[in-house]
């Protein structure tokens, strides 16, 4: 069972970060964080960017841990790497809007 969990790990992390981004977006607007300017960006954007980049970091680490190696030739090992890579790519792509899109309008 753990082998299956490892195969899904990257995608589970994607799901958690993606859901957090969406939830934080709602929360940030409810609390008015978009109006607090820090340097060039609003607090809302900074929080979202922090979550986005740390999510990418975690997934990149995961990809590195599950990287293909000679000792890991088994199907489920490769699946775990594929899952992590898919999670990483998915997060980079689906989270990209936090960089520029308007947050509360």
């Amino acid at each position: 069972m753990t082998a299956l969990l490892r195969a899904a790990a990257g995608l589970i992390i994607w799901a958690i970060v993606f859901a957090s981004l969406y939830a934080l977006q709602g929360l940030a607007c409810a609390l008015g964080w978009d109006k607090w300017q820090i340097a060039e960006a609003s607090l809302a954007r900074l929080v979202l960017l922090a979550v986005y980049t740390s999510g990418i970091g975690v997934l990149a680490l995961l990809c590195w841990r599950y990287r293909p190696r000679v000792s890991r030739r088994q199907f489920l090992d490769r699946l775990a790497f594929a899952g992590a890579a898919a999670g990483l790519f998915s997060l980079i792509y689906t989270g990209l809007p936090v960089v520029a899109a308007s947050i509360c309008r």
């Binding site: 969406y22 977006q25 979202l48 792509y93 689906t94 809007p97 899109a101 947050i103």
Partner: peptide, 19 residues
């Protein structure tokens, strides 16, 4: 809904085309 949420879900919707 705000642009950001639109963009999240628009991106995810195009992404499923890959698998």
């Amino acid at each position: 809904i705000p642009h950001l949420a639109l963009a999240f879900f628009s991106a995810a919707s195009t992404l499923v085309a890959v698998p």
